[in-house]
Design a binder for these strands. Structure first.
Lengths: 163, 163
DNA sequence: TGAATTTGGTCTCATATTAGACTTTTTTAT
DNA sequence: ATAAAAAAGTCTAATATGAGACCAAATTCA
């Protein structure tokens, strides 16, 4: 039988017998991954959380608009708007009004933005590696497969307001 | 071959080719689980995020202190202190100075606290079920097993400041 | 002992985040 | 065409949060 949270007393003290075991555990692990890394980046580079995430997103999807970013990231548009204004002031991104719809502003990284990203991404990578170090290669593949499935399914329930 | 995020163009647009794929996906899924639920609970019950989480933790581990909660939850002590004060004012928890160390305050749910918890936990449960609906029973067991392993391993890296 | 350090918890001030109102542009319906 | 509705983004005022100073109780160790 595979050990799980109900076997190990130390772990049980942390994870306990919540009524949302999976969500709780995901939250627990992610918190310890994300909070310290983000705090360090905030401090060292003077960025806010949405700023960090926007740079991250632009790195693989340049030319998106603020509201597209809101949609797939779940961030609130006020926060994103502020972050975008600040990022432009800092010359880390460039805004270009969409010629086909002048309400929309397409967002692009500048060279400085790309350079800043390159300075903080290694921290996040190292911490991800540390988080996953306890899993074998096969287990990581398994985990990634499950996460892909969960991620693909998000649109089916994320917006359902009764939940 | 199992489909994954690099195959589906729609998903790729969301998850992209980040350099922290696992962490990014966990964050993506968890965001959509947690943010809307917590926002709803905040609004409906007039609780703040740390207040919600403290009630959740006390439900399976009564008698812990604020700093123990900080340790295993990763929350900051200032926020927890504030939340504890407010929760006591609202008569949702009770504080009892530890007779063996009068700096420490043991925290307990009151009946009202238990009742409030009982009103909001179903929302979180329903949303967790929706999130996991795309996985088979076997896959959920797999996921929980991997999460238990990750959670058990957290103490090994969470505090390492070089990361 | 008793001085120095550590620990649990609170407080303060500066900053970040929220909900929701508002402006402008585009789309839809008539 | 034109009025109504929707959408993108910004702004504002209230609230929440974060880093770190602070106090009091407990522990260490000379």
């Amino acid at each position: 039988m595979r050990p799980n949270s109900s076997d190990d007393p130390g772990l049980r003290a942390i994870l306990g017998g919540t009524e949302i075991p999976t969500a709780y555990k995901i939250g627990y692990v992610l918190n310890f991954y994300r909070e310290p890394s983000f705090r360090a980046i905030e401090m060292e580079f003077g960025l806010t959380r949405p700023e960090i995430v926007i740079l991250l997103a632009l790195h693989f999807r340049e030319g998106i608009t603020a509201s597209e970013f809101c949609e797939f990231s779940g961030h609130l548009k006020a926060g994103v708007s502020r972050a975008v204004i600040v990022l432009e002031k800092k010359a880390l991104i460039r805004r270009q009004t969409d010629p086909r719809d002048s309400r929309r502003q397409l967002l692009f990284l500048t060279e400085a933005g790309r350079a800043l990203y390159a300075r903080y991404i290694p921290v996040l990578q190292a911490r991800e590696a540390a988080m996953l170090a306890c899993l074998s290669a096969a287990e990581r593949r398994q985990l990634d497969g499950l996460l892909d499935k969960l991620a693909a399914h998000v649109p089916a329930w994320a917006g359902v307001s009764e939940l």
